[in-house]
């Protein structure tokens, strides 16, 4: 009995199933993408003379969209147990806020007016991993803080974010220190975001990148 225990322990890394242990770190980073969304619409209205209830005159209307833009994500995680880790995330992206201007009362040519937004999402997640081999699926959930700046850093918009989802990690090696690939798919619910109409929005987001375990 006393002889078998150290042998079993020594066999684990050799088998290629070296699990992260409590205290292991993982850094990862890569490209991120969050789906665009309907930013709301609005009419520029003039009051028409008339009795109460007379419909206003529409000077022009605005239809807004936020188009997904390229982004980058970086994470630093620490394992609390073999299958459980927590990680801090920072995500940066540059979506485009576009307003289509049309139906002008004086027949101005329809125009798209746009602005590029700088968006930062800082947050944290709890991850649970299934298995300890080269291919490791996981689920994750957490929350964060969203900050969005208009061009030239004008007007800061901030809000909270919660997310949930999952992904998969593929490790190239089997040692305690190893490189791998990581893909995440999440649903992100944001209390505020750049738009003409403020409401909570639920958006899918994806990221792919590399990871390093140590």
């Amino acid at each position: 009995m006393t002889l078998l225990t150290p042998l079993a322990a020594a066999a684990q890394p050799y088998s290629g199933n070296a699990s992260p242990r409590a205290g292991s770190f993982e850094v990862s980073g890569g490209a991120a993408w969050t789906r665009g969304y309907d930013a709301g619409s609005a009419d520029a209205l003039l009051t028409r003379p008339g009795a109460a209830g007379t419909p206003p005159l529409t000077l022009f209307n605005v239809t807004g969209t936020v188009e997904s833009g390229p982004g980058a994500v970086a994470r630093l995680g620490v394992y609390l147990a073999r299958r459980v880790s927590v990680e801090a995330t920072i995500e940066f992206s540059r979506p485009v806020l576009r307003a289509h201007l049309g139906d002008d009362f004086e027949l101005a040519t329809d125009t798209d007016a746009e602005e590029t937004i700088t968006s930062y999402l800082a947050g944290g997640s709890l991850l649970y991993h299934f298995g300890a081999g080269r291919i490791v699926p996981f689920v994750s959930g957490g929350g964060g803080y969203l900050r969005q700046l208009h061009e030239e850093n004008a007007e800061l918009l901030s809000g909270t974010e919660i997310h949930g989802g999952g992904g998969i990690k593929y490790w190239f090696g089997t040692g305690r220190h190893r490189f791998g690939l990581r893909a995440d798919a999440q649903v992100s619910s944001r209390s505020q975001a750049v738009a003409f109409e403020q409401k909570r929005r639920v958006l899918p987001s994806f990221s792919v990148g590399v990871a390093y375990l140590f």
Binding site: T111, A113, E115, E152, A154
Partner: peptide, 19 residues
């Protein structure tokens, strides 16, 4: 001149002047 829109959204900063 013809009625026209500006092709950029202009964000007004709080307490300041947009570009």
């Amino acid at each position: 001149f013809k009625v026209a829109f500006h092709n950029k959204l202009v964000t007004v900063p709080k307490g300041g002047t947009a570009r």
